[in-house]
Design a protein around this nucleic acid. Structure first.
Length: 821
RNA sequence: GCCGGGAUGGCGGAACUGGUAGACGCAGGGGACUUAAAAUCCCCCGGUGGUGACACUGUGCCGGUUCGACUCCGGCUCUCGGUACCA
């Protein structure tokens, strides 16, 4: 019997100390290190105060990957840091009356200790915090480069505005159309904001999605839809009685002859002008400004509109069609105006029915009987009531009509993206200052490189109203770098997606203080081989990071040939951690504290459970009982170690020993396969449990049996090392491993151990299992059929029938198809 | 609304490329050990019928392809994530 019981607390602290001292988690930059590099990265945490189970899951997955790759002989980079700017720090600051910096730094300290207690194999030498000037100075530098290149620009955009609070609200701060703090209805307001031209990269970002074979199809699909390339035409409608045109984009120029009205956004200049002497219309525009800017709200609200009393001239027929303002047309998408073809578009149809607008059918189906009296006909088809275009199919008609518009100077072929430029300004304090100075003489001037970073004062106290940065004279007042006269700093800060868009590259050269990146280090490690994080980042963060990586490439920070255009080679999107079927969250009060679990069961049990309870990409339902099960398994393995070296009295059986050895090697194969195929740790652990059960059920009666048991237990402990590293190291020490278990070589499958003399072959009649026969693994179809026909349990199903077809699936089954004789 | 997932026993899940559905674990039932309890160990465990061998049935719903479908195709339902200022 083992003289010591498995006691996780002391073991874990012991090994954490030993790993730290030996530096095995440090990514080697050394010249003499010839190992292939592997970069494993988990999405860095927002320092909210305490680690939650979502973090634990994310980082246990990443750690298992990193440790597995080390055991496979890779030189692994596995860094960690803090996404430290953001709204929650300001909210906490308001609540506690202390500056966000204090709260943030205290949280980082606390969460670092919690991460360390989990035994995660991070290279802490590369730790970064995005709220530090050493980090964000390079983001500011990059922004000034983008200004130089014309990729950053300023224009007006709508924000959620709360009058009493005198501040811009995040979408999250708008609840059912009212401000979360004062319950006043929120309305839209235009502000001058900074944008980055991600649309210049839309085609590249779209086309390169094909290269992302290591990403889940669903994420690639979501990005493709988000970028949303569509081809169609831009069409100019003359505004009646004016020299202005109303320009629209449509993907269906074939339906142009069916336009019966136009619709513009409430913020469209035409609507604003028409409202000048129309009180009713002005009131409607005001009503439209009181809804949130969320797409989901806009899409689900009741569709409303009002005629502007203005007409547009149809470019082909010359007919006048009324222009309406509609609450579902967005100023931020396309031109802020659409042509409406109710006969062939569902939304236009509903709107036309509601307001009694004309419905003119111009497309029919192949049989010519498409009907629009009850619903819109939205399929492609054949043109009717379209003058010279009658009889053309939709595809041809699109080209013909676009060609007509082009030759008559009333439109042209166009590609439109759903993707909009990235709005990076935030009217908030706790973020990276935008490195711009406003000068009365010179306009907006970028802060010169030698004056960077623009340091954010960390002592300010937000109140819930306007940003305290704007009131901080020491920050705001400066001089113009061009003319030297008194000038004012930009007080907006960057969207926090800016920081998280390049941190993965910064880790390669985290301590470089002379440039954003050290090109050599970047080219050594990047791109990230395996990125792991929540699927909720499938579009925004991952798209911005793909974009920013290209910006860094194009600014010349690294060689695009060597690194490639994509920052993340493989992506694993993990599911959420649920309790009672809903996401664990503080606000719902359904959380389980990781620290409590670690204190009760140890980090290894917590790690094992989160990896075992669900496949990585699926949601994980938390179960206290399941945690106990994980703990029991570790105890069983702990006791199993006592079997090593034992020879029991009794008769040895060579066949049983051979079967055990086969089991050991099929399980090494299965575990390895599970690791290699999408890191299916839940399946790997199940296979390890089976192996443990098989070893436990076997008693060695001779030296051969003893040797096989030892082989099996050693393989089991080695394969457990990436998942429960402290436990495996302690077991390895007990077994006399030559190296620490977490750096041991991964077990190899002995193919010769897998060979079987005979197998059970399933016999089916009409695809239903009716029995099994024992045959050689490479039995012929005829021999298998003969064996089946000799089996009493099977022949009874064949009686009175004639065999029509026989199918042998080698090593699996024999299916006999019969019909009544 | 739009875009994208998911649905398998009482529960979490497994099932290779279309080839024995329910591995592994949890819960539950029975037993061993114990004065007792805990811990541990052994057996059973989708449903219906049957003492049993066994039979029928069964992977959200409806339909299809196939010798054979959890897996492929068409149509739904419910649910979750994203929806551009939460990160």
């Amino acid at each position: 019997m083992s003289d010591t019981l498995y006691s996780p607390q002391s073991i874990e602290i012991k090994w954490q100390k030993l790993w730290d001292e030996s530096g095995i988690d440090v990514a080697s930059e050394g010249e003499g290190d010839n190992r292939e590099t592997y970069y494993c990265l988990e999405m860095f945490p927002y320092p909210s105060g305490n680690l939650h189970m979502g973090h634990v899951r994310n980082y246990c997955l990443g750690d298992a990957v990193a440790r597995y790759k080390r055991m496979r002989g890779f030189n692994v980079l596995h860094p960690i840091g803090w996404d430290a700017f953001g709204l929650p720090a300001e909210n906490a600051a308001i609540k506690h009356g202390r500056p966000p910096a204090e709260w943030t730094y205290a949280n980082i300290e606390q969460m670092s200790a919690q991460l360390k207690r989990l035994g995660l194999s991070y290279d802490w030498n590369r730790e970064i915090a995005t709220c530090k000037p050493e980090y964000y100075r390079w983001e500011q530098w990059m922004f000034t480069k983008l200004m130089e290149k014309g990729l950053a620009y300023r224009k007006e955009a709508e924000v959620n505005w709360c009058d009493p609070c005198h501040t811009v609200l995040a979408n999250e701060q708008v609840e059912d159309g009212v401000c979360w703090r004062c319950d006043t209805p929120v309305h839209k307001k235009n502000l001058a904001q900074w944008f980055i031209k991600i649309t210049d990269y839309a085609d590249e970002l779209l086309n390169d999605l094909d290269k992302l074979s290591g990403w889940p199809d669903k994420v690639v699909g979501m990005q493709r839809n988000w970028i949303g390339k569509s081809s169609g035409a831009e069409v100019s409608f003359q505004v009646e009685g004016s020299d202005k045109t109303l320009d629209i984009f449509t993907t269906r120029p074939d339906t142009l002859m069916g336009v019966t009205y136009m619709a513009v956004a409430a913020g469209h200049p035409l609507a604003i002008k028409a409202a000048e002497n129309n009180a009713e219309l002005a009131a409607f525009l005001e009503e439209c400004s009181v809804i949130s800017t969320k797409e989901a709200d806009v899409a689900t609200m009741e569709k409303k509109g009002m005629a502007l009393g203005v007409n547009a001239i149809h470019p082909i027929t010359g007919e006048a069609v009324p222009v309406w303002v509609a609450n579902f047309v967005l100023m931020s998408y396309g031109t802020g105006a659409v042509m409406s073809v109710p006969a062939h578009d569902e939304r236009d149809y509903d709107f036309a029915k509601k307001y009694g607008l004309d419905i003119k059918q111009v497309i029919t189906n192949a049989t010519g009987d498409a009907d629009v009296s009850e619903a819109a006909f939205t399929d492609a088809g054949v043109l009717i009531h379209s003058g010279e275009f009658d009889g053309l199919k939709s595809n041809k008609a699109k080209k013909a009509i676009t060609y007509w518009l082009n030759t008559n100077n009333k439109g042209e072929e166009r590609t439109q993206f759903r993707l909009r430029d990235w709005l990076v300004s935030r009217q908030r304090y706790w973020g990276t200052p935008i490195p711009v100075i406003h000068c009365e003489n010179c306009g907006t001037v970028a802060v010169p490189e030698q004056d960077l970073p623009v340091v954010l004062p960390e002592h300010l106290q937000p109140t819930g109203g306007a940003s305290p940065l704007a009131d901080c004279e020491a920050f705001v007042n400066t001089s113009c770098p061009q003319c030297g006269k008194a000038a004012k700093r930009e007080t907006d800060t960057f969207d926090t997606f800016m920081e998280s868009s390049w941190y993965m590259n910064r880790y390669t050269s985290a301590n470089c203080d002379t440039a954003m990146l050290d090109a050599n280090s970047m080219e050594k490690w990047a791109p990230v081989d395996q990125y792991i994080g929540g699927v909720e980042h499938a579009v925004l963060h991952l798209l911005y990071a793909r974009f920013y990586h290209r910006l860094m490439r194009d600014v010349g920070l690294f060689d695009g040939e060597k690194v490639g255009s994509e920052p993340f080679k493989n992506l694993l999107t993990q599911g959420m951690v649920l309790l009672d079927g809903t996401k664990m969250s503080k606000s719902k009060g359904n959380t389980v504290d990781p620290v409590t679990i670690i204190e009760k069961y140890g980090a290894d049990t917590a790690r094992l459970f989160t990896l075992f309870a669900a496949p990585p990409e699926r949601d994980l339902e938390w179960s206290d009982k399941g945690v106990e099960g994980a703990s029991r398994f570790l105890n069983r393995v702990w006791v199993l170690l006592d079997k090593v070296g034992q020879v029991n009295p009794g008769q040895a059986d060579a066949k049983t020993t051979k079967t055990l050895r086969r089991t050991i090697h099929t399980h090494i194969q299965r575990v390895t396969h599970a690791f290699e195929q999408g890191f299916a740790f839940n399946v790997a652990i199940a296979a390890m449990m089976e192996l443990s059960n098989a070893l436990n059920a076997f008693d060695a009666h001779d030296d051969e049996g003893k040797a096989v048991v030892e082989e099996g237990v050693r393989a089991l402990v080695t394969m457990l090392a990436p998942l429960v590293p402290h436990f495996a190291c302690e077991c390895g020490e007990r077994l006399g491993f030559a190296t620490v278990a977490v750096m041991a070589a991964w077990p190899e499958v002995d193919e010769s151990a897998l060979v079987q003399d005979e197998i059970n072959l399933v016999v089916q009649i009409q695809g239903k299992k009716r029995g099994e026969i024992v045959v050689s693994p490479d039995v012929s179809q005829d021999d298998a059929l003969a064996a089946a026909q000799a089996d009493e349990g099977i022949t009874k199903w064949l009686e009175g029938n004639q065999i029509v077809k026989v199918i042998l699936v080698k090593g699996r089954l024999l299916n006999i198809v019969v019909k009544p004789a």
